[in-house]
């Protein structure tokens, strides 16, 4: 027991000295568990996040937009893989991690349980959802677990085009016909609040946050990140002539940031509990893709075996 305590102290000292924790280092069980949960949820979010956007690939308004959207969705698949590979360094098998998603045991970001109803939603998702994700991911580039931090650096480099292409879609629509502008505004209205919820519960209601901060898994609190996101995004909405759907939004000269209205946490809790508009659809789509891809996995194994046999002969 004293030995474990000693190891824990050494571990914390390493963290305090800003040294990264690497896969083969000793780490407390709770640190490992916490990270396996967080990184795998993050990976699942990248993968499930392909579904609402994939919905519009075949209906993109031009070949250029279609190529961009395809590239973005392919990036999300790549991001999922970087993260799955980071989870695996903690000793959890890939199969287990994927099974937990498919069985519904594991969670992913609730934002992807909202539908993409119009083309403007693809703009709003890139601008707001990827924008919010970037805030979180930039912070995670300095997270204490080495493989997670390295995956984040890679992801952040790629993510910035995602947000820019979304904002560009919104800007173009906002400058278009009255119907197009209305479509952009409607998308902003529907995605604004769910995007703010992406940062998670308020600091006062986030029981694990303190430990995550102590372990330097997280470096900034949910509320801090959310506030920075709001301060940046409001200005971007003004530039393209769209309005944020929050009657309480007001610049506060004293704090030099925006004051804003109350988040409907009942809605958040409902979606997390599985009762969002698309929870069932998303999980069913993932399971269908996995099942229908079984022959590809089998074929690859059979092909590898055949090649190995031919080589041996």
């Amino acid at each position: 027991m004293t030995e474990v305590k000693n190891l824990e102290e050494l571990f914390q000292a390493k963290i305090d000295a800003e040294q990264k924790i690497e896969p083969k280092d000793w780490m407390p069980d709770a640190y490992r568990k916490n990270l396996v949960r967080q990184i795998s949820q993050h990976a699942h979010s990248e993968v499930v996040g392909m579904l609402p956007e994939g919905n519009w690939i075949s209906r993109a308004p031009s070949l250029k937009r279609k190529a961009i959207l395809l590239a973005k969705v392919q990036d999300e698949a790549g991001h999922g893989l970087y993260l799955y590979s980071a989870v695996e360094t903690m000793g959890t098998s890939r199969e287990q991690t994927i099974d937990d998603l498919l069985s519904g045991k594991a969670k992913y970001s609730s934002i992807f349980n909202y539908p993409t109803l119009t083309w403007a939603d693809i703009g709003a998702v890139g601008w707001l959802v990827d924008g919010a994700a970037i805030m979180n991911q930039v912070m995670l580039c300095r997270t204490s677990y080495g493989p997670y931090a390295r995956a984040m650096v890679r992801i952040c480099k790629e993510e910035s085009f995602h947000q820019r292409q979304g904002y560009e879609i919104m800007a173009v629509l906002a400058k278009g016909s009255p119907e197009q502008k209305e479509m952009a505004q409607d998308a902003l209205n529907r995605w604004w609040w769910p995007s703010l919820m992406m940062f998670g519960p308020t600091d006062a209601n986030s029981p694990h946050s303190a430990q995550s901060m102590k372990w330097k898994i997280k470096r900034q609190s949910n509320d801090e990140l959310r506030q920075t996101f709001i301060d940046r995004t409001v200005q971007q909405a003004e530039v393209i002539g769209l309005s944020i759907p929050d009657p309480d939004l007001k610049w506060n000269e004293e704090t030099k940031q925006y004051d804003w209205g109350a988040i409907d946490w009942t809605e958040f809790n409902n979606v997390v509990a599985g009762n969002g508009p698309c929870n069932k659809e998303r999980l069913a789509a993932r399971n269908k893709a996995h099942d229908e891809g079984a022959w590809v996995r089998d074929a690859a194994v059979a092909y590898a075996a055949k090649k190995a046999k031919r080589k041996a002969a």
Binding site: L81, Y82, S85, A86, E88, T89, R94, P147, R150, A151, R154, A300, V301, Y303, A304, K307, A308
Partner: peptide, 10 residues
């Protein structure tokens, strides 16, 4: 990083 594949070529 790492990834899964059936053989070296893949």
């Amino acid at each position: 990083g790492s990834l899964h594949a059936a053989d070296a070529d893949m």
